[in-house]
Design a protein around this nucleic acid. Structure first.
Length: 581
DNA sequence: GCCGTTTTCGGCCCGACTGTTTTCAGTCG
C-alpha cells in the first residue's frame, strides 16, 4: 500500500471524527500522522515496527494501524466509522463555508449525506428551517455548490505565481510605499497551491477596497479591515492580510507557514517563555514585545538562523537550524548549464542555434541538445542515422559559438521491455544520453521497475529523465519502486533529473532529497521546447531548494570540464565503456 | 492519539470574519 493511500485513510478518519465531534487533539494526531506518512520518502508499509515509531506523530496505536493497512489493505476502525456515516458525507466537508459541525447538523436534522441532497434542500428553502441557519447561509451553500462544480481546487505553482503577481502588482501600483508580498505555499515553492495569500504592511486602509475591486474578481467572500478574501475568475481564492509595519516579520513568518512548521516554532517559543503570533514574539509573563519587524529577528530570538521558506515544511528544518546545519541552498545563479532541451529536429519550436544562443544569453557555460528518439514517432523522433546527423549539426553550431559549449545529446526512449530505442553504437557516439519513459504507462510496478532498472544498466545512459512520469493535477506517477531506482542510480553513477516543466517537477522534492542522501548525482533541466522554455528552470530550482539541495549536489552547477568528467560514461569503470575509450 | 531537561498524566497554536447569536459558535487559514 502506497504512502498516499495510507495518508488518505488517516485524513478520512480525522474528517469523520470531526463530524462526530470527537476530541480535537485526537483528530490532530490523525492529521499529523497523515502528513508524516505522506512526507516519508520510503514506503511506510515496508518499514519494520521500530522504524515506524521513528516517524514523527506515529506512536503505538498508529503504528499498529499502519501495519494493519499494509497487511490487509484496510482498517477495521475506518470501516466502523464509515458505518456511522455514509462516505459521501465527506464531500460536503469540501464546500467553502461548510465545516464538520454543519455537516453533522445537516445529517442529523435532515438526513442529508450527498451534495445532490444538499442542493435540493437548499434550493427548496428547507435549510433555513434548521435552528442556526438563515437565508444567508442557505445562499452561501448554493454558491459553494456551484463553485465546486466549476473549480476543482489546486493549481500549478507556475500558474499561481502568474496570477498572484498580477494581483500583487495591482496593489503595489496603488500603495507604492507599502510592503506587499505573496506568502503561503507560493512563497514556500510548493509544487501546487490551493490558494493565493498576500500580505501587506504599511498600506492605507483603502487597500482592502483596491483588493476587493481588483480585475478578474468573481466574488468577494469576506471583507474586513485587516483581512479580506476573494474568488478570482479562474478559480483561485485569494486572501489579503494587512498588518502594521512593526509586525511585518511576524506576519510574513506566520502566513508563509507551513502550518506544521509554525506549530513547531510556537512550541519552541513556549519552551522559552515566549508567545508567537502574526503580530510578533512576546513574553508570556507580561506581553513585552521581543521581536516582530523582520523574520530574521524572530528566528534569532528563538536561537535560530533564518530558515528559508522552502524548508518550512516541518521536515527537520528547525532541528537542523538549531544545530547550525541548515544547507546553503542552491540558487538559480549556481547553474552553469541546461542539459535537456528539444529543437525543430523533433518537437521543439526553435533550431539548434536559437536554443544555444538563448542558453548563452542566460549566462550558461554549456548546454545539451537532447531531441527525442524514434519511438516517439508523433514527435518525429530520430532514428540512428538522423541522430548522428543531428549530432554533427549540433557540433557545427558549437564550433561557431565562442562562449558556450554545445553538447550533442539525445532523449532516448526506454522501450516497454527495458531496452533502449537506439543502438548502443549510436548512443556511444553522443556526448550525453538521457533515458526516459514516454509510453506503456500501464505496466504493473514489477514490470515498470524492471524496465527502468534495465535502462540504468545500459552503460551509455547518463541521466534518467523525469523519473516517475507524473503530470501534476492530471496523471499519477507510473507504478514504480522509486527507492530501488534511486539505489540503482547510485550504484551505476547515473544522474536523476529534476525536470522543471511546471506540470512535471519530477523528481519531487522528497524524492530528490532521498536521492541526494543516497549519493545520486542530480541534474536540474528544463526539457525546454522553445528558447523561452529555458526560463522554466526556476521551478526546478524551487524543487531542489525544497529538497535541501546545495550547489555541489547538482551536476550542472559544475564547470564544464568537471561536469563532463562526472557523467557516467566518463567515470565508470564498466568494461563495455572502457573498451570504447 | 502523541509525547516527555518539570511530566507516563495532562497538556496539545491561535486570531479574524461571518451569520444569527443579544454574547457566541462555526469556519478558515
Amino acid at each position: 500500500m502506497e504512502n498516499a493511500a495510507i495518508a488518505r485513510v488517516f485524513q478520512e478518519i480525522a474528517d469523520l471524527l470531526e463530524i462526530k465531534g470527537e476530541n480535537a487533539f485526537r483528530i490532530r494526531a490523525y492529521r499529523a500522522a497523515a502528513d508524516s506518512v505522506a512526507d516519508c520518502p520510503e514506503r511506510v508499509a515496508d518499514l519494520p515496527a521500530d522504524r515506524l515509531h521513528e516517524l514523527p506523530g506515529i506512536g503505538k496505536d498508529l503504528a499498529a494501524k499502519i501495519r494493519e493497512l499494509a497487511d490487509t489493505g484496510g482498517l477495521a476502525y475506518h470501516r466502523t466509522l464509515l458505518e456511522e456515516f455514509p462516505p459521501s458525507i465527506l464531500d460536503l466537508l469540501k464546500l467553502q463555508g461548510v465545516g464538520p459541525k454543519t455537516v453533522a447538523l445537516l445529517y442529523r436534522t435532515l438526513g442529508i449525506s450527498t451534495l445532490d441532497e444538499l442542493e435540493s434542500a437548499a434550493s427548496t428553502g428547507r435549510l433555513r428551517a434548521i435552528k442556526g441557519m438563515g437565508a444567508k447561509k442557505e445562499e452561501l451553500i448554493l454558491k459553494a455548490l456551484d463553485e465546486r462544480r466549476r473549480f476543482s481546487g489546486r493549481h500549478l505553482l507556475a500558474d499561481t505565481h502568474r496570477v498572484a503577481s498580477t494581483l500583487v502588482e495591482h496593489l503595489r501600483a496603488r500603495a507604492p510605499h507599502a510592503t506587499i508580498e505573496p506568502v503561503g505555499s507560493l512563497r514556500r515553492g510548493s509544487e501546487t497551491c490551493g490558494d493565493i495569500d498576500i500580505l501587506a504592511a504599511g498600506a492605507p486602509p483603502e487597500i482592502m477596497d483596491w483588493f476587493t475591486s481588483a480585475p478578474a474578481i468573481a466574488r468577494v467572500l469576506g471583507r474586513g479591515d485587516t483581512k479580506s478574501s476573494v474568488l478570482l475568475d479562474d478559480g483561485y481564492q485569494a486572501d489579503l492580510r494587512l498588518v502594521p509595519p512593526e509586525s511585518l516579520g511576524a506576519a510574513l513568518q506566520y502566513f508563509t507557514g507551513s502550518k506544521a512548521h509554525n506549530i513547531a516554532l510556537r512550541d519552541r517559543a513556549l519552551q522559552r517563555g515566549l508567545k508567537l503570533n502574526e503580530y510578533g514574539l512576546f513574553t508570556v509573563d507580561d506581553g513585552t514585545r521581543v521581536a516582530g519587524a523582520t523574520e530574521q529577528e524572530i528566528y534569532a530570538a528563538l536561537d535560530l538562523p533564518f530558515v528559508p521558506p522552502e524548508l518550512r515544511e516541518h521536515r527537520g528544518e528547525i532541528e537542523a537550524a538549531g544545530e547550525r546545519r541548515l544547507p546553503a541552498l542552491i540558487d538559480r545563479g549556481d547553474l552553469r548549464g541546461d542539459v535537456h532541451m528539444h529543437t525543430t529536429a523533433t518537437d521543439g519550436h526553435d533550431d539548434i542555434e536559437t536554443m544555444a544562443r538563448a542558453a548563452e544569453a542566460l549566462g550558461y557555460e554549456y548546454l545539451a541538445i537532447t531531441d527525442h528518439s524514434k519511438a516517439l514517432a508523433m514527435a518525429n523522433g530520430l532514428d540512428e542515422r538522423r541522430a548522428l546527423a543531428h549530432a554533427k549539426a549540433i557540433r557545427e553550431v558549437g564550433r561557431r559559438l565562442e562562449h558556450v559549449t554545445v553538447l550533442a545529446g539525445i532523449e532516448c526512449d526506454i522501450r516497454p521491455d527495458g531496452s533502449l530505442d537506439l543502438a548502443d553504437d549510436c548512443l556511444a557516439q553522443l556526448d550525453l544520453v538521457i533515458a526516459s519513459v514516454h509510453s506503456g504507462f500501464n505496466q504493473d510496478e514489477a514490470q515498470m521497475t524492471d524496465r527502468v532498472l534495465a535502462a540504468l544498466d545500459n552503460p551509455w545512459v547518463d541521466v534518467l529523465g523525469h523519473p516517475t512520469g507524473r503530470l501534476l493535477l492530471r496523471r499519477d506517477p507510473y507504478r514504480l519502486d522509486v527507492e530501488r531506482v534511486i539505489q540503482a542510480a547510485a550504484d551505476a553513477g547515473v544522474a536523476l533529473e529534476i525536470n522543471s516543466q511546471p506540470d512535471r517537477l519530477d523528481l519531487s522534492d522528497v524524492q530528490a532529497r532521498l536521492a541526494r542522501d543516497r549519493g545520486v548525482p542530480i541534474v536540474i533541466s528544463t526539457d525546454a521546447h522553445s528558447h523561452r522554455g529555458l526560463d522554466l528552470v526556476r521551478w526546478g530550482i524551487a524543487v531542489a531548494r525544497r529538497a535541501w539541495l546545495e550547489a555541489p549536489d547538482v551536476l550542472n552547477t559544475r564547470p564544464f570540464g568537471e561536469f563532463r568528467a562526472r557523467l557516467r560514461r566518463h567515470r565508470t569503470s564498466d568494461a563495455r565503456i572502457a573498451s570504447r575509450r
